[in-house]
Lab assay of single mutants.
Amino acid sequence: MAAGGDHGSPDSYRSPLASRYASPEMCFVFSDRYKFRTWRQLWLWLAEAEQTLGLPITDEQIQEMKSNLENIDFKMAAEEEKRLRHDVMAHVHTFGHCCPKAAGIIHLGATSCYVGDNTDLIILRNALDLLLPKLARVISRLADFAKERASLPTLGFTHFQPAQLTTVGKRCCLWIQDLCMDLQNLKRVRDDLRFRGVKGTTGTQASFLQLFEGDDHKVEQLDKMVTEKAGFKRAFIITGQTYTRKVDIEVLSVLASLGASVHKICTDIRLLANLKEMEEPFEKQQIGSSAMPYKRNPMRSERCCSLARHLMTLVMDPLQTASVQWFERTLDDSANRRICLAEAFLTADTILNTLQNISEGLVVYPKVIERRIRQELPFMATENIIMAMVKAGGSRQDCHEKIRVLSQQAASVVKQEGGDNDLIERIQVDAYFSPIHSQLDHLLDPSSFTGRASQQVQRFLEEEVYPLLKPYESVMKVKAELCL
């Protein structure tokens, strides 16, 4: 049975990233139509530049190519590739079939990587351009969430054990800070992308030097003109047959890092959902379990974690691919890159769409948070109580021993009897502590235990987050809708 299948058929496997999760716009960027249309555009740009620099290419040939950029006979191309065992030459023939007058000058002087690699770089750039505003929107939604809850005390956790208090907004800023680093890295790697350009079979530009009869300047002009037509500021000066596969490492490393950030955020949300302090959106008709109707599973956060793990592992592909590119190139890269580049971007696209949807509907339960604080705060307040007693004339050592005994009794009630923490009640009825009984409410005010959390939130948002989001103001209103 021949390899390949009808990918629109229910009898043929289709990647869930495309069929179930990723956005239509990201799927289109990695589609065959987008790819092969870009090949034709690159052939047109090459012909236009070659004509401008004096090669015998007519206006009629150029116009014929322009008129057929979208006229792609995919069936013919597939048949040609089956016959020739070469995808680029299959599309040269297919393009030439609908451009008979231009057929002889299509791909003039070029090698397969002229269309293959340059198209990949265009796709990487455009895919990054799709991700950047999506990530900015996630940051914006979380920034709104953090600002609104900047002063809401909550129990902090280290080692997932109760620690000092923080605020809900401050905790959210930990998430935002990681995503801001990801946004900066995505922008950097996007701006650092260079075009492969017009380089020939081993990167020496020998074929173009021959076409222009040894004119170095025209060869350099050709490279520059096509690079500018493709919208790049610069091209690699040095290439082998391909652009260095280190570029793929750079791009997928940034995406993998984004995956790590999203995994951490969504894990926190899942843990908070278990504590009943916070939940992701839950639709009115949504079913959490087929057997347990009360369940409210954090399905979206779980999906993000599941896909983020996949995204983090994909960076190993370009690392290994770059390491086995012998001399000017081997074909070890080809099949692998067809999979890992598309999957990385479709996965990143999915987790950003999902995280935006989550961040637009996060639900906080202040009463649950308050109750958990009441359970733990008495123990945390013991040092403040000791200091207040010393100020009232008591002995630190005597007070410490009193607190120690009462704390152990209260802990026994919590752990052995399943009761509430009654340390404060014990202190309130103990005559030894009568000098500070009137101060206990103040000493137990949760806001006095959150330090500068709310001020940190305000400063972080104003100095770091809002300036970073400013270039994306025009796209901030787009909502994230999930079908599944």
Rank of each mutant, 00 (worst) to 15 (best):
A3E: 12
G4F: 15
G4L: 15
S12L: 10
A18V: 11
E25G: 11
F30G: 02
K35H: 12
K35E: 07
W45A: 11
T52C: 12
L55K: 12
I57S: 02
I62W: 04
K66I: 07
F74G: 13
F74E: 15
K75S: 11
M76E: 10
E79M: 09
E81C: 00
K82A: 14
M89G: 01
V115F: 01
G116Q: 12
G116M: 04
T119S: 14
L121V: 14
L124D: 09
L124C: 12
L128A: 09
D129Q: 11
L131C: 11
K134T: 14
R137K: 12
V138N: 10
A143T: 09
K147L: 11
H159M: 01
Q161F: 00
T166V: 10
I176C: 11
C180N: 10
D182V: 03
L186V: 12
L193K: 05
G197V: 02
L211G: 01
F212V: 09
E213N: 15
D215S: 14
H217Q: 07
K218I: 08
Q221D: 13
Q221V: 12
F236Y: 13
I237N: 10
I238W: 00
T242D: 06
T244H: 14
V247G: 09
S253M: 14
V254A: 12
G259D: 06
A260I: 00
D268Y: 00
L272C: 07
L272G: 08
E279T: 07
E279K: 08
P293R: 03
C304L: 15
S306L: 02
T313C: 14
L314C: 13
M316H: 12
M316V: 10
D317H: 04
L319F: 07
T321K: 03
V324P: 03
F327C: 13
L331D: 00
A335S: 15
L341T: 14
L346R: 05
A348R: 01
A348C: 12
N353I: 11
L355S: 14
Y365W: 15
V368G: 05
E370C: 08
R374V: 06
T382K: 04
E383N: 01
I386F: 04
A388E: 06
G393E: 05
D398N: 10
H400M: 04
K402V: 05
I403K: 06
R404M: 08
L406S: 05
L406I: 15
S412V: 15
V414W: 06
K415H: 06
E425F: 11
V429I: 14
D430P: 02
I436P: 05
D441V: 09
S454D: 13
Q456G: 05
Q458V: 13
P467M: 08
Y472F: 12
E473Y: 12
L482H: 05
C483Q: 15
